[in-house]
Nucleic acid binder design. Sequence first.
DNA 1: CGACTTTGACCGGCGC
DNA 2: GCGCCGGTCAAAGTCG
Length: 194
Amino acid sequence: MDCLQNPNPSSAGPYHFGESIDPSIDFDEFSDCFMLDYGVDDHQDSSSLSTVSPEKFMADCFTGSSGGATSRNSNNNINEGRRNKTEMGHSRVAFRTKSELEVMDDGFKWRKYGKKSVKNSPYPRNYYKCSSGGCNVKKRVERDREDSSYVITTYDGVHNHESPCVVYYNQMPPPVDPNNIWTLRASSQSSASS
DNA sequence: CGACTTTGACCGGCGC
DNA sequence: GCGCCGGTCAAAGTCG
């Protein structure tokens, strides 16, 4: 299991953000990562995006605020009209990331349990569950139908455990530059990969 | 051999 | 009531 890529909306730290398996993805591209409005999974248009800087997003996530930077009960929620799953204590976070890869490894271990073609989209949607025992977090991954270079990831729920990478990081010596999360992340990464 | 992925079937909610 | 659609299940296949 590699601890690469992407923000995690539940408990992963900022040092998870901004690095990719794919060397073609650099940090600049992660500035294209948008928080999507809640309920975006029914395929939003870009006007419904609520853009949040990755830094803010991750900061919110890391403080444990449920749902991160999302607006939890935003209006214009198409999906929740169908299924009012998101009740108290049930958060959903979606974001859109420019990536060649569909699998956004966020440090958690996911088990794929389904794949569906989506109406009005040429790309299938993949369904994953957190494979940690007792953790019922799910995520959906699909390509943006309008720009296939983007991947839309929707997390459903909050992990009741830490990311294996967070656990690992807590055992690490102090970062090279605590003010630079990229350095910090890279430092962690290079050690982890050995 | 265990863990994981694939994929068709099934189920429930919603709109007409 | 019926059909469509999204989400989940589970058996079979694959991989390390």
